[in-house]
């Protein structure tokens, strides 16, 4: 089997610009990303790192002023960027689906859960009672007690955690090949967050789909994902298996980020680590490495030369890549 088909999603050299008054804002630059079949890939990054642009590019629902300047996005062997709108529509919700941070943004407040879950199966030629049964089964799978009768309830009758479970059930009902989860646990309390993570793990292994999990919470990524992608200001700076990247981070940004996570600081301190400075202006990019202005290990060449992507582990099956001059030495 060829290499491409092992990956559900395969992004190559993707760059996206936004046209703004200040000129073109280069939101994503030369992004390479693979999501292997049956794997959970986590994306970590702070605000402005390009996470949202990446998602909108994968589902091909981009803002009007967005322009893809280079690259390909292959999903199950076909390029989404050149696909017809009709074909795209038939993929969304069927082969790929998405869960957002705020479940109420995906649930229609004036329709019952049951109606919404049956409605999204409109492509199926099954009877209505069969579809309802399927929805009830799905609700049971995401841990909603007494699903058959709760199908008749409206979204606002559920708590926030329950709503998120329902939106996950809706997303997974069609057994998609790829689930995109955009900060699905950020709005939830810690005790619910761990419940949802455990549930996602279980569902993933029973359905066998791949998950692209976006979060700023490093602990959640560490617990849930196989692979992690670290993004900074529109570029992927480091990617690889979670165990490797979090255990021995190579990029100064990843190192700093892990250091800043208050959960990882077991010793009480009145002076927490931070990353000085701010994200560079994406309309006016620096010549060298994007992280130079905030990097604590920068050298002269960082300011002038863009670093290339390097494999950290030579010959290993699971590749660990980093985009930094320090690693090329």
């Amino acid at each position: 089997m060829s290499k491409a088909t092992d990956n559900v999603l395969s992004i190559r050299n993707l760059s996206i610009d936004y046209a703004t008054q200040e000129g073109s804002l280069k939101a994503l630059r030369n992004v390479d990303l693979d999501i292997p079949k049956g794997q959970i890939v986590g994306v970590v990054g702070e605000s402005g790192c390009g996470k949202s642009t990446l998602i909108s590019s994968i589902i091909q629902l981009m803002a009007n002023n967005a322009k893809t300047t280079s690259g390909t996005v292959f999903f199950e062997g076909e390029d989404l960027l050149t696909m017809s709108p009709t074909k795209l529509k038939s993929l969304r919700g069927q082969r790929m689906s998405i869960v957002f941070q705020d479940p109420m943004s995906t649930l229609n407040p004036v329709l019952t859960i049951g109606k919404q879950m049956v409605d999204i199966q409109y492509r199926d030629k099954r009877s209505k009672s069969q579809k309802r049964q399927r929805s009830a089964d799905m609700l049971a799978q995401v841990g909603i007690p007494d699903p058959a009768s709760r199908l008749n309830q409206y979204p606002h009758e559920f708590s926030g955690g329950m709503q998120q479970r329902i939106s996950i059930a809706m997303a997974l009902q069609a057994q998609p090949a790829l689930l995109i989860a955009d900060e699905p646990t950020t709005a939830l309390d810690a005790t619910l967050e761990v419940q949802i993570i455990d549930m996602l793990k279980e569902l993933q292994s029973s359905i066998g789909c791949s998950i692209l999990f976006i979060s700023h919470h490093l602990g959640v990524i560490a617990e849930l994902c196989n692979q992690v992608v670290v993004m900074y200001a529109g570029e992927i700076v480091e990617q690889g298996p979670v165990s490797r990247v979090f255990k021995s981070p190579k990029h100064p940004y990843t190192q700093k980020l892990l250091e800043c996570d208050p959960a990882s600081i077991a010793k009480k301190t009145r002076n927490l680590p931070t990353i000085e400075g701010e994200i560079p202006n994406l309309s006016d990019l620096p010549a060298g490495c994007i992280f130079t202005s905030r990097c604590h290990k920068k050298t002269a060449q960082c300011e002038e030369l863009k670093p290339k992507r390097h494999a950290v582990t030579q010959g290993a099956t699971e590749k660990h890549f980093v985009t930094c001059h320090l690693e090329s030495l």
Binding site: S159, G161, M162, A190, T191, L192, E193, V194, Q195, I197, D198, H217, L218, G219, V220, A222, E223, L224, F246, L258, D261, A263, S264, A266
Partner: peptide, 25 residues
Amino acid sequence: LALLSANPEVTNVGALERIALKGEV
């Protein structure tokens, strides 16, 4: 105890054994 343990961490150093809470508030 449950709150403290429901805290996904990058490293497992000093992590408490997770106590899962049933249901919701």
